[in-house]
Design a protein around this nucleic acid. Structure first.
Length: 422
RNA sequence: GUGAGCGUAGCUCAGCUGGUGGUAGCACCGGGUUGUGGCCUCGGCGGUCGUGGGUUCAAGUCCCAUCGCUCACCCCA
């Protein structure tokens, strides 16, 4: 019986893992500079957390969650809800009302897998909780943009404001009326959505719907005073920080907790998938989850698989294999035994030492040394053991010198490391 | 949930209108170098042709079913 990964789940093999590490390192570096602290969260949460925050009636909650129905538990489909839960549960606002947090890890959604879309996927997630200042919106987007810049990726930023509970209902009625007058030119889904979730129609990819929606009332014209002022300030902030963006009044995000600012980073190079990341404001989520009143927040998630696809597509530094500092090649059983304490001592001093167990021919071992891109190879055969002198070969210059084996393993290691690093 | 395409070596793939599975490339192992890598060269290892039925003298090839994967719709990261 052969086992294999289940559909929509993928192994990240060592060759690819390097790219992931690089991605994570860059993200952590950015977050450090912006004062975000890491928070690590469980993958399993009470189902109600997601139903309440993401919202009943969203695709995620209705049909995409991995839920253990008998236990009332669900594998998280996104990170913001869990972060909000942790913020409330541990009263993080008491010590520091404004929390700047990030987390990196897997999410789970039961959708049909395709390019750039898996059932277990990974996100880099950043949140700023506790401020309503538009400057925070601009800062957050600028941070994400900088991260993408440093990864060397070219993506576009689209932003929108979807208003708040004050102004959205009015817009909704306007929109519903507009859509119902033209329901004939809408696709079946959108005819249904006109009633249940009219904002989604704005985002429909169907050509007929797109055309119909082109002249629909714009949410941006219906924003209340506060929302309009906020959005204007966000845009000024982006301009001041030199972040380029385009306005997309049709962008609607698939989670109910968003208010005011929403944004997406998009690319055209991922097949059917365009979003590499997205986020927005959720000024009522914390309170909704039983936290302190008036605790606004905002955040974004970046899809790591999609970023990795873009990084790989760019096709650079595929050869970035970590080099071994030295490969130790013993010949014969005695040498192999002799070498073990030395190898360990060198590793203790911080050098990457490669060697094989079980002695193979020198040629085979040299090949292996080459494969791990060793800078040096230390050759110790029967003759060397007797003479207490090993051969140290510089793999790049091909120069060889003798290396005295007099002394303890620790002493030899010191000498060896000095030679390698010198 | 819907639709389309594809399953041949560890990976990438040839294999025509059915007639013995490819000296194929990459990778791996070994020889050429009695103890010296990359390049070259020679050799070697490696397959229930996804699985199960059917048609046929004969099926990797045709038909049916099934499993798996991929892409797309939908939605999103």
């Amino acid at each position: 019986m052969k086992f294999q990964t289940v559909n929509g789940f993928k192994d990240i093999l060592p060759d690819e893992a390097l790219c992931w590490q690089q991605l994570e390192q860059t993200a952590r570096s950015i977050f450090r500079r912006f004062g975000l602290r890491e928070i690590r969260l469980p993958l399993l949460e009470p189902t109600g957390l997601f139903a309440r925050s993401i919202g009943e009636g969203t695709d995620i909650v209705d049909k995409e969650m991995y839920t253990f129905a008998d236990k009332g538990l669900t594998l998280r489909p996104e990170a913001t809800a869990s972060i909000a839960r942790a913020y409330v549960e541990h009263g993080l606002h008491v010590q520091q009302p404004v929390q700047r947090l990030f987390t990196i890890g897997p999410m789970f959604r039961h959708e049909r897998p395709q390019k750039g879309r898996l059932r277990q996927f990974h996100q880099i997630d950043a949140e700023i909780i506790g401020t309503a200042e538009p400057a925070a919106d601009a800062e957050l987007m600028a941070m994400a943009q900088l991260l993408l810049d440093e990864l060397g990726l070219k993506v576009s930023l689209e932003i929108n404001s979807i208003g708040c509970p004050q102004c959205r209902p009015g817009f909704r009625t306007q929109l519903v009326q507009y859509l119902q007058e033209r329901s004939g030119s809408l696709c079946e889904d959108c005819q249904r959505r006109s009633g249940s979730n009219p904002l989604r129609v704005l985002d429909c990819k169907n050509r007929g719907c797109k055309e119909t929606v082109q002249n629909a009332p714009s949410i941006l014209d219906s924003l209340c005073g506060d929302c309009a002022a906020h959005f204007a300030a966000v845009r000024r902030g982006l301009d001041d920080l030199g972040v380029r963006y385009s306005l997309n009044r049709f962008m609607v995000r698939g989670l109910d907790y968003y208010v005011r600012t929403t944004f997406e980073f998009t690319t055209t190079e991922l097949g059917a998938q365009s979003a590499v990341g997205g986020g927005g404001r959720y000024d009522f989520l914390i309170e909704e989850l039983g936290g302190p009143k008036n605790t606004p927040g905002l955040g974004f998630g970046l899809g790591m698989e999609r970023l990795v696809l873009l990084l790989e597509q760019r096709g650079e530094d595929k050869t970035a294999v970590p080099r071994a500092d030295i490969f130790v090649a013993p010949l014969g059983g005695q040498a192999a035994e002799f070498v073990l304490p030395l190898v360990h001592a060198v590793r203790r001093l911080g050098c990457a030492v490669a060697m094989e167990h079980g002695s193979r021919s020198l040629k085979a071992q040299m090949k292996q040394a080459d494969r791990v891109k060793a800078r040096f190879t230390l050759i110790i055969g029967e003759q060397e053991l007797e003479r207490r002198e090993a051969v140290l070969r510089n793999m790049d210059s091909q120069e060889q010198s003798t290396f005295s084996l007099q002394g303890t393993a620790a002493e030899l290691a010191e000498k060896l490391v000095a030679l390698i690093l010198g």
